[in-house]
C-alpha cells in the first residue's frame, strides 16, 4: 500500500532558501521520524506533502504515483489540537466524515464507535474546553484517523503535553498504530520520543535544510513502557544528538 516518497524537494520561503534538497522515504506501515532544529522547515515539508503548498522543485509520490500539490490524500495532525470550541468531541471528530459528504447523524455514529479506542469513552458530548490536554490530543488524533487516508502526518503532536501525560500517550499511540497500521511521518524535537516510537529517523540540518542523518532504529515500538535497555540505544542517541547540534 502507501509508501510515501519525497524526492529532491526544494522550497524558498520569503526569499530564504528553507528546504534545499530533501529526500525521504516513509515505508508502508512504518513510523518515520523527522528531527530537526526549530525553524528548519519541518512543518513546511509537511505542508508540501499534504499538498497545501507546492515545492519549487521535487516531487511527492504515494504508492508510486506522483501527487505533488494534491491535497486530501493524507491525514494531518499538529501540535495544536485545533478542535473547534463550539462543537462537542463527537461533532469535532466527525468533521472529516461530514466534509466527505456523510450525513451528520451517520458520521456521529461512526465516530462514536471509536471513542473507546481513543480513550474518550463517555466524553462524546463534552466540549474541548472541558477536556485535559491529553484528551484533546487524542480527540485530534481520532479526527485524523477518521479522515482515513492511511497516511498520518503528525507534526509534534505531543509537544505541548507534560512528561507524564506524554509517556501515557506514547504507549497508547503504539497500541493504536498496531491496530490501524497506518504509514506515519512523525515530526518531533524530542530525541527519546523518536527513539521510542520511530522505526527510522531522519535528522535535518539548519536552513538551508538537507537531510543530515538517516538511521534505522532496531529496538523501537517496544511492547512495554519500560526504559529501553538495548545496548545500541546510547550510541544511536549520541549520533542523533551530534547530528542535531552541529
Amino acid at each position: 500500500m502507501p509508501k510515501v516518497v519525497v524526492e529532491g524537494i526544494k522550497k524558498t520561503l520569503g526569499g530564504i532558501l528553507t528546504l534545499q534538497k530533501i529526500n525521504i522515504e516513509a515505508e508502508d506501515r512504518a513510523v518515520s521520524g523527522i528531527l530537526g532544529p526549530s525553524g528548519c522547515g519541518k512543518s513546511t515539508l509537511f505542508n508540501i506533502i499534504a499538498g497545501l503548498m507546492r515545492p519549487d522543485r521535487g516531487n511527492v509520490s504515494i504508492g508510486g504515483e506522483v501527487v505533488t500539490g494534491n491535497s486530501g490524500l493524507t491525514s494531518y495532525m499538529r501540535q495544536k489540537d485545533l478542535l473547534l470550541p463550539n462543537l462537542n468531541v463527537l461533532d469535532n471528530v466527525s468533521i472529516p466524515l461530514v466534509l466527505k459528504g456523510m450525513p451528520k447523524k451517520k458520521a456521529r455514529l461512526e465516530a462514536e464507535r471509536h471513542l473507546g479506542t481513543f480513550g474518550l469513552e463517555g466524553f462524546g458530548n463534552y466540549y474541548p474546553g472541558q477536556l485535559s490536554g491529553g484528551m484533546r490530543q487524542r480527540a485530534a488524533l481520532l479526527r485524523t484517523y477518521l479522515f482515513s487516508s492511511g497516511i498520518w502526518l503528525l507534526d509534534e503532536p505531543f509537544a505541548s503535553l507534560d512528561a507524564i501525560t506524554k509517556r501515557k500517550m506514547h504507549t497508547w499511540l503504539l497500541r493504536v498504530l498496531d491496530q490501524f497500521q497506518p504509514t506515519v511521518l512523525f515530526i518531533t524535537h524530542d530525541v527519546d520520543e523518536a527513539l521510542y516510537l520511530c522505526d527510522k529517523v531522519y535528522v535535518l540540518s539548519e536552513c538551508p535544510t538537507v537531510v543530515k542523518l538517516e538511521v534505522e532504529i532496531p529496538f523501537s515500538r517496544p511492547h512495554h513502557s519500560h526504559t529501553i535497555v538495548d545496548p545500541a540505544y546510547g550510541p544511536l542517541r549520541d549520533a542523533i544528538m551530534d547530528a542535531l547540534s552541529i
Binding site: N47, A50, G51, L52, S71, G72, T74, Y76, R78, K80, L82, L84, P85, N86, L87, I95, P96, L99, K100, F147
Partner: peptide, 26 residues
C-alpha cells in the same frame, strides 16, 4: 488561527465550509 484554515484545507473543505464551520464560530 491560520493553522485551522490549513487543517481544514488538508481535509478538502471548500471556502464556504471553512467560513461556515471555522471562521464564523471562532
Amino acid at each position: 488561527d491560520r493553522e485551522y484554515l490549513e487543517l481544514f484545507r488538508s481535509m478538502k473543505a471548500t471556502r464556504l465550509d471553512i467560513f461556515r464551520m471555522v471562521k464564523l464560530p471562532l
